[in-house]
Design a protein around this nucleic acid. Structure first.
Lengths: 167, 167
DNA sequence: TTGACATAGTTAGCTACCTAACTATAATGA
DNA sequence: TCATTATAGTTAGGTAGCTAACTATGTCAA
């Protein structure tokens, strides 16, 4: 998301303003800081998953399968729900199938389709990760009061709505 | 960052809680929403840059070069400041050099090194993008008052500090 | 002065993302 | 019924990220 480590400071933005005219220094600093912190939070989660041998993409596939009553879905639906292209999903499933966490099954009715099923090994992986994940999220969010959380989310939502300015 | 489109709801989390015991539903929902909005903001920026033929990685390299008084740097420093590996920087610079936006120059004193210089074409690219970028950021951040921005940042910083819970 | 270590950058091979093009199959309608 | 269109999934080829291994060069101390 925002890889940049060396965020600009007021001095640098002042220099850029000389060339580009009016620059709202605070707005830029706040915007980049928000992106940076979002990235930091995401990377904290990635690090946690990595210690369980997972990355976000694969983890979400397992979770999406576990949400289903019969523990099955198909590549297209999984792609849509995880927000990646079907091509990317093919690759994710290749990896998960190779590790035995999911299984590809032929669809009897429609030979274009595959059914993807969470295997016992896949369920076991989630049973290892999730009871470790939930308490950590709880502990992290506890740093904010209910009111503060609500405030935070509202402010972020306002920004998101305004992000159409980039269109 | 967070590709997932289909965030869980209270019902789904309740179901997961049956298997995994206590789940702080609100904490999880808030956490994921924060990641999702961060991703949305970042994607809005990506879309903007893409219309100028850039992606974040390349854009930051150009900006880091423009920050330097002599418009030059070297791959290692650029990698460090942009927060990517030296290997990734090699590839980014390959692309930028191919498009003529930067130039690799031999270092006379140390033959292991290269100097990377922003070319006039690279400067022209920034002169096209930045005067379009700054006003948009300003317009976006205007949706929040100074106090709200401060509040938002403080709350995010608290979360970031607590993200050590994932270690 | 030369052997060991450090540094700069690239290459190789991996994951994960994309779009576009492709194959196979299904559905539809003239 | 069969030509067209739609759908499911994969493949191909691109970018961007990573680590590990490599090459070349520089540094330093015995």
């Amino acid at each position: 998301m925002l890889q940049l480590r060396d965020l600009p400071n007021a001095l640098i933005l002042g220099k850029f303003a000389e060339r580009y005219g009016e620059v709202d220094v605070d707005a830029v600093l706040h915007f980049l800081s928000i992106l940076r912190i979002g990235t930091d939070l995401s990377e904290a989660l990635d690090g946690f998953l990595a210690r369980h041998g997972l990355l976000q993409g694969r983890w979400w596939v397992l979770i999406l399968l576990m949400r289903e009553d019969d523990l099955t879905s198909n590549p297209s639906r999984l792609a849509e729900k995880s927000g990646v292209s079907r091509a990317t999903m093919t690759r994710l499933l290749d990896g998960l199938a190779r590790e035995g966490l999911v299984k590809r099954l032929d669809d009897r009715n429609d030979r274009r389709k595959y059914t993807i099923r969470l295997t016992p090994a896949g369920q076991a992986k989630l049973d290892e990760v999730m009871p470790d994940y939930y308490p950590r999220v709880k502990r992290m969010m506890e740093v904010l009061s209910a009111a503060q959380r609500e405030q935070l989310l509202q402010n972020l939502l306002l920004l998101k709505e305004r992000s159409t300015v980039f269109e």
